[in-house]
Write a protein that binds this DNA or RNA. Sequence first.
DNA 1: CGCTAATTGCAAGAAATTTGCAATTACAAG
DNA 2: CTTGTAATTGCAAATTTCTTGCAATTAGCG
Lengths: 141, 141
Amino acid sequence: MNETKQLQQFKELLKRNKYKNTPERRLLFETMLRQSSPCSIQELIDLVKNSMNETTVYRNLETFEEIGAVTRVYSGWRYKLELSDMFRGHHHHMTCRNCGDVISFDEQPSLLAELHKIEQKHGFTMQSHSLELEGLCSNCC
Amino acid sequence: MNETKQLQQFKELLKRNKYKNTPERRLLFETMLRQSSPCSIQELIDLVKNSMNETTVYRNLETFEEIGAVTRVYSGWRYKLELSDMFRGHHHHMTCRNCGDVISFDEQPSLLAELHKIEQKHGFTMQSHSLELEGLCSNCC
DNA sequence: CGCTAATTGCAAGAAATTTGCAATTACAAG
DNA sequence: CTTGTAATTGCAAATTTCTTGCAATTAGCG
Ligand SMILES: [Mn+2]
Ligand SMILES: [Mn+2]
Ligand SMILES: [Zn+2]
Ligand SMILES: [Zn+2]
């Protein structure tokens, strides 16, 4: 299945960065893999609370960030986390202010071209970027 | 001067939303007006700490958000706050990962056009959006 | 199979944010 | 310009979020 492939990739990522492949890390990763939209830390803590300690979640999320396995997504009040482009493919989000739905969308080359224009204009070297839209989804009109 | 005009606008905004025009709110607003890049809550608390209570800063920032006077900017670790488009004009940010500088840039019509394409493609009605770039500024190469 | 350094859980601590309440103040009605 | 009243403030306390220290456990290597 597909999940196995990403888990494999994750294990290699850990090894490459000299981190141990623990059951807690695998569980946290697989839990994140199962989510269809970014989660707050509290949500993640709740999702795994009977298999691992809150402190361990914090520490492992920090590790995940360090090795580039997760990305912060800034939607809503506090930031949320999701697996990085490496596991999810590069994309952005639209959040519906009415129903709260988060819709992911790919980045078209023409949008990326616009970002490159900005880079050039300011002599900036872009290493990453985030784009978040808020509004109303097609259901909420 | 220019500052007076924005302060005036701010006072009207408060009145329109039935909030009182207190010295604390004016000071907080004027302090934010003086900043050239987004501030964390803690930075704001420090900036006004001998004129108002920490709790009051929290409560007023919440009010400011409610009436649309401030915007959250998600650059770096935690979110920061700046005055909204209403006072600052619409713009986005590039943050330098080396020196930490935050550079603001305007949104070109061609970029906005790209966002409209996304809207149409997904039947989404965009009410606001944020775009943040991270990388290296022209000084940091 | 051991050895060893990394990881974990738990308890404690620090920092950030929220809440309750009495005292103060803005502001509008008279 | 006073006066009445609801909104706002400050302070203390509570809560929530996040971090740290340390002893016990465990992954991964030889
Ligand atoms: Mn993108
Ligand atoms: Mn914009
Ligand atoms: Zn919706
Ligand atoms: Zn720089």
